[in-house]
Computed example of a mutant assay.
Amino acid sequence: MTPAFNPVIHAPHRLQICAMLAPLGEIEFSVVREGLGVSDSVLSKQARVLEEAGYLTISKATVETRQRTWLAFTPAGRDAFKAHMAELQRLANLAGV
């Protein structure tokens, strides 16, 4: 994996979404919304940008008669996030942080 700065991922809310997905691979929309402290519309917009880039999928399922929305990394999304984090680490090392 080559470190690569990714402006799609780097936006603060999108970076946080990816960070929440990284250890799990899939997470419920409401958990991400509460973790970020944003509205449904803000999270939907940011998730849509990541989906359009091919970095995550958005799926819906009925769980105990309630409609739930799930966000999940695609393989390309996981790779892009890892490369972005590697680039941030490389930059931090250059800065001596």
Rank of each mutant, 00 (worst) to 15 (best):
S39D: 13
R33F: 01
R66Q: 14
L50P: 07
L43V: 11
R66H: 12
S30N: 06
L71V: 13
K45P: 02
S30G: 04
R68A: 03
P23M: 13
Q46D: 13
E28I: 04
L71P: 09
S30W: 02
I27P: 05
S41D: 10
G35S: 06
I27C: 12
V49M: 00
W70I: 05
G54C: 00
V31I: 08
T62C: 06
G25Y: 10
V49R: 00
S39Y: 09
L43I: 06
R33E: 11
T65W: 05
G25S: 10
R68E: 13
Q67C: 03
V38P: 00
S44V: 02
K60E: 15
T57D: 14
R48V: 02
A47G: 01
S59N: 11
R66N: 09
F29T: 03
L71Q: 08
I58W: 02
R68S: 07
V38D: 00
G37H: 09
A53V: 03
Q46R: 14
R66W: 05
K60S: 14
Q67S: 13
V31D: 05
V63L: 13
L56D: 01
V32R: 07
K60H: 14
S44C: 10
R68F: 07
D40I: 04
T57H: 14
S59P: 03
G25P: 07
G35T: 03
L43P: 06
Q67T: 04
A53E: 03
E51F: 05
G25F: 08
V31P: 04
E64Q: 15
L36C: 06
L36E: 09
V42Q: 14
Y55Q: 01
V38W: 01
T62A: 09
E28L: 00
Y55S: 01
P23S: 13
L56N: 08
L50E: 08
A47Y: 03
L43M: 07
L36Q: 06
E51R: 15
F29E: 11
E26W: 00
V63N: 04
I27L: 15
L56H: 06
K60V: 10
G35A: 07
E51L: 06
V63P: 06
G54H: 07
S39L: 11
A47L: 01
I27E: 13
A47K: 04
A53Q: 05
Q46K: 11
S41W: 07
T65D: 15
L43G: 08
E28R: 09
L71E: 10
R48M: 05
D40W: 01
V63E: 14
A47E: 02
W70C: 00
Q46P: 03
V63Y: 11
E52K: 07
T65S: 15
F29N: 09
R33Y: 00
V38L: 10
V32E: 03
W70F: 14
K45V: 01
R66C: 01
A61C: 02
E52C: 02
S44D: 14
R66L: 13
R66D: 09
D40K: 12
S30H: 11
G54W: 03
V63A: 11
K60A: 14
V63I: 15
R68N: 10
R48I: 02
G54F: 00
A53F: 08
V49N: 02
Y55K: 08
G25E: 04
S44A: 15
S41L: 10
K60M: 11
